[in-house]
Design a protein around this nucleic acid. Sequence first.
DNA 1: TTCCTCGGCCAC
DNA 2: AAACGTGGCCGAGGAA
Length: 559
Amino acid sequence: MEILVASEAGTLHALTLDDDLTPTSSQRLDRAEFAGFAASVEAERPRWVWADTAALYPELLRAGVRVQRCLDLRLCHVILRHAAPESFDAADAWDVPLLPEVDAVPSLLDDLEDMARLGDVGPDDLLAERVRQRDVLATVADPGRLRFLLAAESAGALIAAEIAHDGLPWDLGAHDAILTDVLGPRPRPGSRPRRLEELARQIQEQLSAPRLNPDSPVDLLRTLRRSGLDVKSTSKWELRELQHPVVEPLLEYKRLARLLSANGWTWMDTWVRPGTDGRRGRFFPDYVPGGVVTGRWATSGGGALQLPKQIRAAVRADPGWRLVVADVAQIEPRVLAAMSRDDALAAASRGADLYQGLVDTGIVDTRAHAKVAMLGALYGATTGEAGHLMPRLLRAYPRATGLVEDAARTGERGGVVHTWLGRTSPPPPAAWRETQGLATQPDAGESAERRARQQARDWGRFTRNFVVQGTAAEWALVWMAQIRLRLADLTDLTDTADRPHLVYFLHDEVIVHTPARLAEAVAEAIGDASAEAGRLLFGGFGVEFPLDVAVVEHYGEAE
DNA sequence: TTCCTCGGCCAC
DNA sequence: AAACGTGGCCGAGGAA
C-alpha cells in the first residue's frame, strides 16, 4: 500500500493507492491532523510517497511519529532524469534545486521553509509524477537495481531528517576546554586568543615585519620572499620543507587559526544548542542527501563533513548513554572488487586489512605502497609513486583496474558512466564539448589541442572516480538503511526516550547514540547490517566489508 | 556596503 | 608542493 501526501496551500491531501497506483481513497487533512493520521496508518507499514521528505517529515518527528519507508519523489526524479534523459522533457518543477538561488527571492527569505521545498504540490500533480516515475522505471535496462537505488535514496532522506531532529550529542564544556587548552581563554570579540597573539608576535619578529598579518596569504608570501625564502605559496606543504626559525611558529599559527575559525567559539555559538540537565548539547548538521553528483551526502552549514579530529572529543554521549562508532575499512577498493567481479582482488580483501592483503600476495612490498597504488588507481594518478606502481596493479587485477580504466576512457570521450545500482554521471557541460570540437578542426592550433587533451583527461578522472565513489555511497546508504531497521527492532517503537538512533554519517562511517545497556546489541546490529548490505548489493560474490566498531563515551576515543 | 573569487585546509 | 577524486567553509581582498 502506498499513501501519497500532497501539500497545497496549507492543506494536506492523503491518497491511498493500490498496487496499480489507482487511488482507493482520498482525504483532506488539516495540518494539525497529519501526525495523528500518520501514526494510525503507520501500523499497516505503508510506503509514504511525498514530494520532499525534508518538507513533511520534520513535523511528524516533532509529534513523535516515525515512519518505516517512503519515496522521496524529488530525489527519485533527479536519479531517473539522469538515467533516462530521453523520457523527460525540458526541466520542470521537479527539477528545482533544493534551495533556491538566494538572489532570486530575497523577499521570500522568511518563507524559505515553505518556498524552497517542494512542499506545495497538489494531489493530481503528485500522483502524475508517481505514475511517470513508475513508467520511466519500466524503460530502463535494469529496473530492479534502479528501484532499489530509489528506495535507498529515500531511506537516506528519512535518516537525514531524523538526524536533523535528534542532533549529535555535543559537550560544550569539553569543547571549550579543548579550545582554552590550545588557544587560551575565549578572547573578547575582535581580538586574537592569547596563544595566537604570542605566535603572531614571534612570526613578526623572525621576519622583521612588525605589521605582518599572518592571516593574509598575500602579505605573508611577500614577507617570506623578502626574507630570502624562495617559496611560491604559503601552504604548509611548502613551508614544512624550509630551514628557517619562522617555520615552526608559523605552522603552529596556521593550525590554531584554522581551529579557531572553523570550530572555535563562534562556531559553537552558531551551531550547538546548549544542553539541559542530564542531557548534552546538540549539534545539528544540515545534511543534504544526494547533494553530491556521485550520490554522497553533502551538508549545508555547520561543516559536519569536516569535523576535525582535534575536537571530536566534544562529541559525547548523554549520561548513561554510549556512542557506537563504526566505519568500513577500505570501502572503495572492496566495492570495486565486487562490482568488477575481480576474484583476485576479492581474495585479497578477505581480511580486515585489504592493503595488507596486497602485500601478502606479493603485489607490492609495503602497506603504504599498496594504499598509494590503490588510491592512485581510483583517482587516476599518472605520476609519482602511484603512477610508478600502476603496472603491477594492472597485471594483478585486470578486471578491477579494467573497470575504472574503461570508465576513464568513456569520460574522456564525453560519455556517461553508471554506478552499480544505476546512478548516471552527468554529461560534460557544453563548454567542454565546445573545446573538444574546436580541437578537431583542421586549423586547430597546438594549444587548443593541448587544452582539449587536458580537459578530456580531467573529465576521465571524474568518471573513473564516479563509478567507485558512487557505488560506495550506495553501499553506505543500504548499510545505514539496514542499521535503521534493526535499531527500530531493538526497542518498542513507542518508547522514544530510550531509542537508539543514528546521529552522524560520514561517507563510510556512522555513529549511533544509544542507552548504555543496548550498546552491545547496537554494535551487533551494525555488523549484521554491513553483511546484509553486501548481500543485497552484490549477491553471493565473496567480498567482505569488515567494520571497525567501538563503544565509547566520546568520539575522540574512536580511531 | 555587499558580492564574489581565491588560497588554504579540513574531512572522506 | 602538488600529484590524484568528491566536497564545505573560512578570511582576505578586489569587484561591483
